[in-house]
């Protein structure tokens, strides 16, 4: 696959600038002695779990439940990660095992093409 280098460069620069912006914002806007606006505190606290839920669905958005393999590989993968993580709480083990099992499933067991 080929991607335009210009596009990739500018996209990364945009991500870098916005990311730095979120990190530098409190140093610019919230000086000592001033209370942080309530809605910022609120959004900052409760947005992350909502965002992660969104990202998981975003990752799985192209799964078709009505066509073979009916999202079964994804279900196996997510379940592997979840069970291992609740049990061991080790990021590396959970991510690695889930990914390998998912890859084996779609490459050798529930092969689509």
């Amino acid at each position: 696959m080929n991607f335009s280098n210009n596009y990739t460069f500018f996209a990364i620069v945009v991500i870098a600038i916005v990311t730095f912006g979120t990190r530098v914002a409190p140093f610019i806007f919230f000086r000592k002695g001033k209370a942080t606006p309530k809605y910022i505190v609120y959004i900052g606290k409760y947005l992350p779990p909502a965002v992660i839920s969104m990202l998981i669905i975003y990752c799985l958005k192209n799964v078709n439940l009505f066509k073979f393999p009916f999202g079964i590989p994804e279900l196996i993968g997510v379940a592997t990660v979840a069970i291992l993580h609740i049990w061991k709480r080790n990021n590396l083990i959970s991510i690695l095992s889930g990914t390998v099992i998912y890859m084996i499933t779609i490459q050798f067991i529930l092969v689509t093409n």
Partner: peptide, 25 residues
């Protein structure tokens, strides 16, 4: 090597973060 499905690592990462947050909040 056949990397088909390796992008599942991203989903796995978010599932891990999701579980960590679930226990925190």
């Amino acid at each position: 090597f056949n990397t088909q499905g390796i992008d599942f690592a991203m989903t796995a990462l978010f599932v891990v973060i999701f579980i960590e947050q679930w226990f925190t909040y």
